[in-house]
Amino acid sequence: MTNIFIHIALLLIMPPLLLGVINKTKALFAGRRGPPVLQLYYDLIKLARKGVVISQVTTWVFTAAPVITLTAIMLAGLMVPMGPFQSPVAFTGDLILFAYLLALSRFFTTTAALDTGSAFEGMGAAREVTFACLSEPALFFALLVLAKMSGSLVLTNMLHAPLAAGSQASAASLVLVAGGLFILLLAENSRIPVDDPNTHLELTMIHEVMVLDHSGPLLGIILYGAAVKLFVLSAVLLHIVFPFQSGSALLDWSLFVLEMLLTAVAVGVVESVMARLQMRNVQHLLIAAILLCGFGFVLLMR
């Protein structure tokens, strides 16, 4: 019971911290002091107190979308176990629901962008959906590898498969899947090789361009939702990269938080040492992710 409370508390509170750590890492690489680690919390509080301006041409979709997006991602977060603990929600076949909750959140983000009628936002929506075509197969291949390895269709059991010593036989495919999922993490959260979260007025951005018309609390919800998505996908990746268990619950939870922060640092390092890819080269990266995960599956089936 306590574990479920800690799970929900971490899911609610921790995500904005990750973005703070990423930005701090990037600042350190650039030799700046950078914004405080808690900056996103301040931003969210500030945005929550502001008013909302809603364009007259928009419909209910525009206001509902951020809420639905956040809800969908939160629900997905309830299915992903953290560290060696059980997830609060688990049933057979929940991996499909997990994947489609992510897809639902994307559907509503893009629909809201189209709803504004702005050509600029429509362009962002088109890009987001195009790249999703390539990132979803990669996710499913990764889930397929885990399902085959654990012999189960419950997300909790699947993600605990590397932990359950079955990994001895299949470290090779896990290495490949970990690589694929890391690319997926960067692409899904619009981090640097795919999209630059800092630019607001460039033609190459994907996620930021879709939320230009949102303001006040709605924008706050979108920012928070994006942070939660980063948190959830990192939690998935961590099961494959660090399949360790100490036995004591307290130690495991602190280990999990530490691993999470390390993932944020890793993302920050990647953003600092790489340039954003040209838009026409992004699909090569995503195809590489598909191939990595697919090849992992082939190795497992061999």
Binding site: Q168, A169, S170, A171, A172, S173, V175, L176, L299
Partner: peptide, 10 residues
């Protein structure tokens, strides 16, 4: 062997 396989994949 699992570690060896992981290295070979890399």
């Amino acid at each position: 062997h699992s570690l060896l396989n992981a290295l070979l994949v890399v």
